[in-house]
Nucleic acid binder design. Structure first.
Lengths: 149, 149
DNA sequence: TACTAGATTAGAACCATTATTACTTGATAG
DNA sequence: CTATCAAGTAATAATGGTTCTAATCTAGTA
């Protein structure tokens, strides 16, 4: 993760206008971490910018995706989530509550996957993503009560 | 992939009613292969069952998922796709046209991933899925014209 | 053949996302 | 400091995949 100023500079360099809404969204993503959905970003940022619209949230998230600062995470079936594009990590998703846990696996293992030649499938490989499925701690302990969705 | 009769028997064993619509959907999945969306299944099956409703398609796909015969594939951004749950394979998704290509990687490599101990993350690993991203043949050759959304 | 639990249908509802349009503003140049 | 305008924002409508609902129908059984 880089500081806010670095992101702001990057925007300036590319002629992207800096508005209070955008900066607030940047800050939100940096502060809360995790894998927020557009809804969650909206909830958080609209506390300080009550007129914020969803379009702005979506536009900004798209902008950040295009800048390579954020990655879309397709994990939940019907909702897009966003991940500050820090150093590479993989996701473990609980099959019951859909909680997303960042996981670091051996860098070598991922690199090995990305070396695979998929030419036989007429496919130019760019990136390999591993998604682990299973049970998070709370859901694995049935007495616990914080499974959701 | 198993024959239709095996699937029918499995339904009977579990007290699941067999209707013409369900059987037609089973057949559709087995014949057309690939990773159809609910929409595609509907289009195909409604040719023979013109009164078919989407609810039936979704219900049946959910039923098959619960039976373990089908797996939901979360790959395209916001549309669910379904994969006959045959022997294990991984997916390569074109980042431009979203075409999904089945890919077989060394079984050992996947098995190794599933052996990883995620206990440090308080996570009980059940399955590892690898998704490759890149360009399919058509999209890698810019002169070709069959890239689609 | 009649019964009934469960399946199907049509259509409305839902919800995340995208598009549209009018209004507003950040960044620049004078 | 102000004027300018390309670009951004807000409000709201539209879209599209999925789920729900209520009424009707039917597969499997007695």
């Amino acid at each position: 993760m880089q500081p806010l100023t670095a992101l702001i500079d990057k925007c300036r360099d590319r002629g992207v206008k800096l508005t209070p809404q955008r900066i607030a969204i940047f800050e939100c993503l940096m502060q809360q971490g995790g894998h927020p959905s557009a809804e969650e970003v909206y909830q958080e940022v609209s506390r300080r910018h009550p007129t914020l619209s969803f379009a702005t949230v979506y536009n900004t998230l798209q902008l950040l995706t295009d800048l390579g600062e954020v990655r879309e995470v397709i994990v939940d079936e019907l909702r897009r989530r966003y991940d500050l594009n820090t150093d590479s990590h993989q996701h473990a998703v609980c099959r019951l509550c859909h909680r997303i846990v960042d996981v670091r696996v051996g860098a070598g293992q991922v690199a090995a996957l990305e070396q695979i030649d998929l030419g036989a499938y007429d496919f130019q490989l760019e990136r390999a993503t591993i998604q682990f499925t299973g049970l998070c701690g709370s859901c694995a302990r049935p007495s616990s009560e914080d499974a959701d969705t």
